[in-house]
Computed example of a mutant assay.
Amino acid sequence: MKYLKCKWIHDFMNEPTIIISEIDENRFETRKIEIFRDGKFGLAALNLEYMNTRLGEVPLPDMDEQFEVQSISSQEFNEMWRDKIQSFIRLLKD
């Protein structure tokens, strides 16, 4: 697995500004976190879609100049994933 944190440089109000993806050896997303300007977030995994966040249906392409991409560790990804899942569970309870 590889882990990417992408800052998406754009002016769209309803699109995420940060996309954090876990991708397999064929560059398919297996888990994804999207973070929006207002602090809201979306999650996607094989059995989860929250806030209209979905896994890509094709391999993740190379990123262009609209994205600032950095590799992150599996530990970093998993810490962010756990944090967002816990927030998601709290939202479901409210």
Results as ranks from 00 to 15, higher is better:
residue 11 D to M: 09
residue 54 R to L: 07
residue 35 I to L: 13
residue 33 I to G: 11
residue 86 Q to E: 15
residue 21 S to P: 09
residue 8 W to L: 03
residue 42 G to Q: 06
residue 94 D to S: 13
residue 6 C to K: 14
residue 49 E to T: 10
residue 49 E to I: 00
residue 27 R to F: 05
residue 86 Q to K: 14
residue 20 I to K: 00
residue 64 D to C: 12
residue 17 T to H: 06
residue 25 E to D: 15
residue 80 M to R: 12
residue 81 W to R: 04
residue 12 F to C: 10
residue 42 G to W: 02
residue 91 L to Y: 07
residue 37 R to L: 11
residue 70 Q to W: 04
residue 37 R to N: 11
residue 32 K to S: 00
residue 62 D to M: 13
residue 23 I to W: 04
residue 6 C to D: 15
residue 1 M to T: 14
residue 48 L to P: 00
residue 40 K to Q: 13
residue 35 I to N: 01
residue 10 H to I: 06
residue 57 E to M: 14
residue 13 M to R: 14
residue 6 C to F: 08
residue 7 K to H: 14
residue 57 E to Q: 13
residue 28 F to D: 02
residue 63 M to H: 15
residue 53 T to N: 00
residue 81 W to D: 02
residue 71 S to E: 15
residue 34 E to W: 06
residue 21 S to D: 13
residue 14 N to K: 04
residue 30 T to W: 00
residue 94 D to A: 12
residue 80 M to I: 10
residue 1 M to I: 13
residue 44 A to G: 03
residue 35 I to H: 03
residue 55 L to Q: 04
residue 22 E to P: 04
residue 69 V to A: 03
residue 80 M to A: 10
residue 28 F to A: 07
residue 24 D to Q: 03
residue 82 R to M: 14
residue 56 G to H: 06
residue 15 E to S: 07
residue 81 W to A: 04
residue 75 Q to Y: 10
residue 88 F to A: 01
residue 7 K to Y: 13
residue 64 D to G: 10
residue 69 V to I: 05
residue 9 I to T: 09
residue 40 K to L: 11
residue 33 I to L: 01
residue 71 S to D: 15
residue 37 R to D: 11
residue 8 W to G: 01
residue 14 N to C: 09
residue 55 L to F: 08
residue 17 T to C: 06
residue 4 L to G: 01
residue 48 L to S: 06
residue 75 Q to G: 05
residue 12 F to A: 12
residue 87 S to F: 08
residue 68 E to Y: 12
residue 26 N to Y: 12
residue 39 G to S: 10
residue 76 E to F: 05
residue 23 I to E: 05
residue 57 E to Y: 07
residue 55 L to M: 05
residue 86 Q to G: 04
residue 54 R to Y: 11
residue 60 L to M: 09
residue 74 S to L: 03
residue 75 Q to A: 12
residue 69 V to G: 04
residue 83 D to A: 09
residue 2 K to Q: 15
residue 61 P to D: 08
residue 46 L to H: 08
residue 70 Q to Y: 05
residue 76 E to T: 08
residue 70 Q to I: 12
